[in-house]
Amino acid sequence: MLKSKSKNRLCFFIFVLTIMSCVEDVDFDQAEDLTLTPVVASSVVYTDVEASRFSENGIELEQVSDTIANIEIFTEEFVIDNLVRTELIFEATNTINRTFGLQVDFLSNSDELLHTLSFDAQPSNDGSEVVTESTHVFEGDSQEALKLTVKMVITLRLYPSMDGSILDENSTGNITLRSKGFFYLNIPV
């Protein structure tokens, strides 16, 4: 009798332990607050143009430009929903004794101009590298404009020289452009 009583108690104890164990103060609903905020860094455009390339048949070119069309990345649903801020950072390195203007135009599907950014790359008087940095922040309206962009036009404009000299096929030096973007995402999970 005593034996089976103890036996039962032990069994009971183990069962109680198993079933009545506690889970205290835990709130799984918190997971609903989860928001991911990664910042994606990406190379954007780069180029290296020699001074002599601004001359064609002895005539100085005023500007060169190029177009990137069919850009799908900014109009992706994921980007539209989650991209909250963009920084584009340009770095121009100039060894030509001329000032260049760099302009990037952002165009919509219907070639409507949505946004423009520009900056000047300072001249190099002695052929040494002159670095010009320029940061462009897209927030609010400009950020919304970016999300409609499917085409970018990049223009490198050569400002007239102070002394009237022009670049010819024998001109030395070059201008390089490097850039990167920081894309700030806010992804509610």
């Binding site: 455009v45 190029d66 069309a69 990167k180």
Partner: peptide, 21 residues
């Protein structure tokens, strides 16, 4: 991937940025 390299079509024998892209 290093980025997009616009080669400016005015410059001879250039692949355009669009091709590159």
């Amino acid at each position: 991937y290093e980025g997009i390299n616009p080669l400016f079509p005015e410059v001879p024998n250039g692949q355009t940025a669009e091709d590159y892209w």
